[in-house]
Design a protein around this nucleic acid. Structure first.
Lengths: 198, 198
DNA sequence: ACTCCATGCGGAGGCAGCCTCCGTTTTTTG
DNA sequence: CAAAAAACGGAGGCTGCCTCCGCATGGAGT
């Protein structure tokens, strides 16, 4: 309850250094081996013991969330770019692609992302960014609906799920880009407004 | 190259017994813990040592394929039922639901299923059933396209992927049935023919 | 029924990854 | 420069995967 905005002590130098090294190593390992990468190997390559890794990031999800921080911010930045073009339909389309790219950052990322949405416990560091992305998707959807380009029955969460799904499929490495494109087209023609039965 | 249709020796009794016990235990464990269930625990509960498990089913996928055998046959059976109704559009719809249910048999099943499709090596016991299901899906799609109810650009594999995706989402346990229904509806209105641009 | 031996069995144990103590070292502070 | 707070990292316990290899089991031939 006291003045917590101040650090009573200057943060130690090795802490900052180790944290940076860990994030850097994690980035590389997640990129190469997917989100299931060995944390021990990662720590060793960062030049720290396992205990230090766990002290900085108590769970795999915490580490993941920290590594994703940068990309998350890029996503928000792109959001501003997208908003600039007037067409809400095209804006929604581009947002969904951006989302999908974000989810495809590492192989296997969709899994813990969905798990974070499941556990309503906010101790999962991935829950917060997820909720934010869902809310943003919903904004785009509503804008597109007002412009009459999108079915009124569609919810932001639905298209969020669709984007995660496509990212998941991409992450399995099974499918070529053509199939993915057709799948995206299918989804798009699924939410676009047409004079059909609701 | 000789008469391999004959077993030179009658198969031993304990082999059949152990195999059955393993399948039964696997069924229960996969149901409860998903496809990642501990094989050791499973073997112990079947009353056999780990070596026996691995002798019968050299990989997790082999065990999975054996457990799925029954359900796979049910699926084919349902295929006949579905074909009975004349409407190809409704047939396709029901087939996709059946597919999705099959993929949802155990939590986490979609993952190894996609992996099986990736490795073109046929040593993966899941590859064969997969290919069959994709081919069957394609048949349904073509029938529906001939009847003019389905966009000509859609391929069977696309809808197969869509079904796997929905099953995957369902398996993560994140999402309520309402959202899943909306997602299914979105996919359906994505492949249904409408007088729109192609 | 009894023996023989192919066949299958299972425990022990090596390996890898996760995570946590706790004695030691580093860094800040006065 | 000394003392204490803070962080470090190696050792080790745990779990699960998978494989040897000596032993038991049960079918086949007499």
């Amino acid at each position: 309850m006291s003045a917590e905005g101040q650090q009573g002590r200057k943060p130690r130098a090795d802490v900052r250094r180790n944290r940076a090294a860990l994030l850097e190593a994690a980035q590389r390992h997640f990129l190469r081996d997917g989100v299931g990468a060995s944390l021990e190997a990662l720590a060793k390559e960062a030049g720290v013991g396992p205990a230090t890794l766990y002290r900085h990031f108590p769970t795999r999800e915490a580490l993941l969330a920290a590594v994703l921080q940068t990309r998350s911010e890029e996503l928000v930045a792109r959001r501003a770019d997208i908003a600039r073009l007037g067409d809400p339909s095209e804006a929604l389309r581009q947002w969904l692609r951006a989302l999908e790219e974000y989810f495809s950052a590492f192989s296997g990322l969709p899994e813990p992302l969905m798990a974070a949405a499941r556990e309503r416990e906010p101790d999962n560091p991935l829950t917060l960014p997820c909720d934010e992305l869902i809310a943003t998707t919903d904004e785009y959807v509503r804008a597109a609906q007002l412009a009459g380009h999108t079915r009124p029955s569609v919810k932001g969460y639905d298209l969020y799920l669709a984007a995660v799904s496509v990212a998941w499929i991409k992450g399995t490495g099974t499918t070529d880009e053509d199939s993915l494109d057709r799948l995206r087209a299918l989804i798009e023609s699924g939410y676009r407004e047409q004079d059909d039965e609701e």
